[in-house]
Computed example of a mutant assay.
Amino acid sequence: MAEPNFKNKFLKFLRAADFNIVDVEVKERNVLRPGIRFDLDGELLLSKEDDAYVTVYDVYTTHRAKEGSFQVHFDNESTGTKAFMFLALYILHNENAKKVLLIDEFDRSFHLELAEALLDVFTHEKQSNQFILTTHELSLMDHNLRQDQIWFAEKNEYGETELSSIYDFDDVFLNRGDFGYKKRYLEGRFGATQIVNHSALLDVLGE
Rank of each mutant, 00 (worst) to 15 (best):
M1I: 03
P4I: 04
N5Q: 12
N8D: 08
F10S: 04
L11W: 02
L11T: 02
K12A: 11
K12W: 00
K12R: 11
R15P: 00
A16E: 14
D18T: 15
F19R: 06
I21C: 02
V22F: 00
V22Y: 00
V24C: 10
V24H: 05
K27M: 09
E28S: 11
E28A: 07
R29T: 14
N30V: 08
L32M: 14
G35I: 07
R37D: 07
F38P: 00
D39R: 10
L40I: 09
D41N: 15
L44T: 11
L44H: 06
L45E: 11
L46E: 14
S47A: 15
E49V: 03
T55E: 09
T55V: 15
V56L: 10
V56S: 04
Y57T: 03
Y57C: 00
Y57L: 07
T61A: 14
T61G: 10
T62S: 08
T62K: 15
H63C: 09
A65E: 12
K66I: 02
E67R: 13
S69N: 10
S69D: 09
H73S: 08
D75T: 10
S78M: 05
T79S: 12
A83I: 02
F84D: 04
M85Y: 08
F86A: 14
F86P: 00
L87S: 05
A88H: 08
A88L: 07
A88C: 13
L92W: 03
E95L: 14
N96V: 00
A97D: 14
A97M: 12
L101P: 09
E105D: 15
R108S: 13
F110I: 08
L112D: 09
L114Y: 09
A117I: 01
L118P: 01
V121A: 06
H124Y: 10
E125N: 02
K126P: 00
Q127K: 01
F131G: 06
T135G: 06
H136E: 04
E137M: 12
L138C: 04
M141A: 06
D148L: 00
Q149T: 06
K155M: 08
K155S: 05
K155I: 03
E157F: 06
E160K: 10
L163N: 06
S165Y: 05
D168V: 01
D171N: 13
L174D: 07
R176P: 03
D178Y: 10
F179P: 05
Y181D: 08
K183R: 12
K183H: 05
Y185N: 07
L186S: 03
L186I: 12
E187A: 15
G188V: 12
F190K: 06
Q194L: 14
V196K: 12
H198S: 06
A200G: 03
A200K: 13
A200N: 07
L201P: 02
L201Y: 12
D203C: 01
D203R: 14
V204K: 13
L205E: 03
G206E: 15
E207M: 03
